[in-house]
Write a protein that binds this DNA or RNA. Structure first.
Lengths: 406, 406
DNA sequence: GAGTATATGTTCCGCGTTTAGACAAATTCC
DNA sequence: GGAATTTGTCTAAACGCGGAACATATACTC
């Protein structure tokens, strides 16, 4: 039951029905390909004639193409299969992180073309823009991958979508930095930028085949140096008034808890981020960023997990604490949003087999209802590159999005 | 950018455009009445002919009616004004609370007809159903208010919308109680039930004139014996997977904090509910519900506020603590959802002039961004009966809702 | 191998809806 | 009283779904 905003609505025009059905057809071809016109018509519950017209429109725009005729199931004429045409256009995804920057090229369907490349991040935005331009141009020239539809860039910080600026990215030391337009100008290709937590949520939304999570509510929790979350409601990313929705990382577990990088105390992030886990292991104060010695300077959470698996009791204890706090925070997300599924990404997921019981126990401990405690938790391994996939989705997804109506 | 759910979509039919535009017209008449066909056409940016056809359809369904012709502004034919026809149908709103149950009758526009009546709540659901049936029938017979379109019931607990059952209402002592169908059967009128926090959010969504909050994201925080919240996203109530979204009251401020009625510790509710404020004043333990003496048994938050205003330092201190914790919790809502506006209802709002600076200070203290700290906070006084208005909206709003499309 | 049954894809017409414009009715200004 | 202007209705055209007929293609049967 959605209210129509009387100050901002969209009247249905003569072509609105067609527009709606065109997008439905495109999406069904995307999720069911290869598919025939007749099957499409059956799925849409319209006559074959209508489906045929929609298909010919999509064909003329070369959004789809006709493949070989398929094998007939019974008797009768064999169907001609339709596919999304992702051959001539590619998309570039860029993931800027504090230490390294990653680049991935995919087709419009998000299929990976080539390998993920990376280079050390230069925190000077002008130098970084130049380097990105050089490497993206080089990648696009190397491959026989047709023209580039756009570049999606993901940053670990808050983004002003209207202006294309990074408002605040603590780990990069950026404050109100212009990124989208300079990069677009240098490349001559449209550029989209977005916060990494939101992008991860987008990636899951657009690549998950599961019926449950296809368009229902879900939350992506990304745990690395910080904790970012992206919230999907009704098949749409929740942006909020200033595109800053989803900062669950700074909801407190205990307002009297450890100091967080954001300046407040007791944020969830201050309990479960990689830095928090490492600090717990070394007995450091989280706020004190100075490395104590050579070991702590290069020691990562992966190393800690390896030690825990090898039997280091102190490492396991640090990990178990993180697991418990992780579950307690997830319970807050479940109590407040009741999502159909929660995705978790980040280095900590490599230890999931170790920590899962503790996480789930903590979730049950604080969730208000029994079914809340059974909320699906889905681990997203690093190899799936959720941030890069999200960056790609920024560019590729709009072509498949539902038209705005009413 | 909404994703189309390939497992659950709605194809545009021949009448879909008309359906969309019909609802837009109805909503514009609702918000702009009195309005002429010509003005409607200008607002919708369609030809007068289309608006005329939409209007005649709405007229034939007697959803609207033609009033007297208006005065011409300049020269030219005078317009005939259109109004929402809320004359023949009424709606009953019921607010079941632990102590008393309230009844309100309105027209379809939510305009109050008669006074709010109330009676002591009998926690036996069968007795309560009988009493409700008797009183509602009596109310409907008394007035010359036409037929009743439906009854909306609001309860302080979780509701299973599909089954129409109250899953858990702690203050009423209800667990898995069937309410909707027995009441509907006894009355012979459709009944809708919903959680009170969600209903309050609905009430604001459907009655607010403000452009800002018309369809954007907002959160209603209802503070009484417990803390309930309702979340509105994109002009739609966020229900979540089990209709349990919005339990921000049980997100912790400090997991080591006081024990909450839900069994967990340190919930926001355990810091800011009326019971929490009173416990703080009397120095009780929140978990210990026994009244110590005659005074504490009947002493309410309103009494406490009165004492604070009269100069009772202890009362003011208790109130100020609540205000600070209120602000800290609101900051969590802002950080996680970034709503355009937060509504606050409950007895505590009568002390708003006392506590506002402290609340806002606490919000600023923990919000991640500067604009987060400036999020609009809107006080909803008890006289507006947000729960009852929400109950009414459960019945009245569907007629104005946007059609499901794509 | 011819005929029949069945499935796919195309085409045509009917009908509902928006779009555009003309027209009558009503009202004010000159 | 006539011109100008606004409202509301009406008609024809354009567009798209709804339904059915038709051509095409394939397998099965006799």
């Amino acid at each position: 039951m959605r209210k129509i905003n009387p100050h901002d609505f969209k009247v249905a025009r003569r072509g609105t029905s067609r527009e709606i059905n065109r997008q439905i057809a495109l999406n069904l071809i995307r999720t069911h390909q290869p598919i025939s016109r007749a099957d499409l018509a059956r799925l849409m519950n319209v006559r074959r004639g209508v489906a045929s017209l929609l298909v010919s429109e999509l064909l003329s725009e070369s959004l789809i193409f006709e493949g070989a005729v398929g094998e007939a199931v019974g008797r009768g004429r064999r169907p001609t299969f339709l596919y999304i045409d992702s051959r001539q256009r590619c998309v570039v995804g860029v993931d800027i992180r504090a230490s390294r920057t990653y680049i991935l090229v995919t087709d419009l369907m998000g299929k990976q073309l080539g390998v993920v490349s990376s280079f050390q991040t230069n925190k000077d935005v002008n130098v970084l823009t130049q380097e990105l331009t050089r490497r993206i141009n080089q990648t696009l020239a190397d491959k026989e991958i047709g023209s580039c539809a756009g570049v999606g860039v993901v940053v670990p910080g808050m983004v002003d979508l209207a202006l294309g600026r990074v408002l605040h990215a603590p780990t990069l030391g950026w404050r109100d930095v212009s990124l989208r337009d300079p990069l677009a100008a240098a490349l001559g290709i449209p550029v989209q930028i977005e916060n990494s937590g939101k992008a991860c949520a987008l990636a899951q939304l657009w690549t998950t085949r599961s019926e449950v999570a296809a368009s229902a509510n879900s939350v992506f929790v990304s745990i690395s140096d910080g904790v970012g979350t992206g919230i999907v409601v009704n098949g749409e990313l929740l942006r909020g008034r200033h595109n800053t929705a989803g900062e669950f990382g700074h909801v407190p577990l205990s307002i009297d808890g450890p100091r967080c990088s954001c300046g407040a105390t007791g944020c969830w992030e201050a309990y479960v981020s990689n830095l928090a886990t490492l600090s717990r292991y070394f007995g450091h104060d989280l706020a004190d960023a100075r490395p104590r010695d050579a070991e702590t300077a290069t020691f990562t959470v992966e190393d800690l997990i390896a030690r825990a698996r090898a039997g280091d009791a102190k490492a396991l204890a640090a990990l178990n604490s993180t697991a418990r706090y992780l579950g307690l925070g997830l319970a807050s997300i479940i109590n407040s949003l009741d999502p159909a599924r929660i995705y978790i990404g980040g280095e900590i997921t490599t230890a999931w087999s170790l920590i899962e019981p503790i996480v789930r126990g903590a979730v049950r401990e604080r969730t208000l209802t029994d079914f809340g405690g059974t909320t699906e938790i889905h681990i997203v391994p690093a190899e799936e590159h959720p941030r890069l996939r999200g960056a790609v989705a920024l560019v590729a997804a709009p072509a498949f999005a539902a038209p705005m109506v009413a």
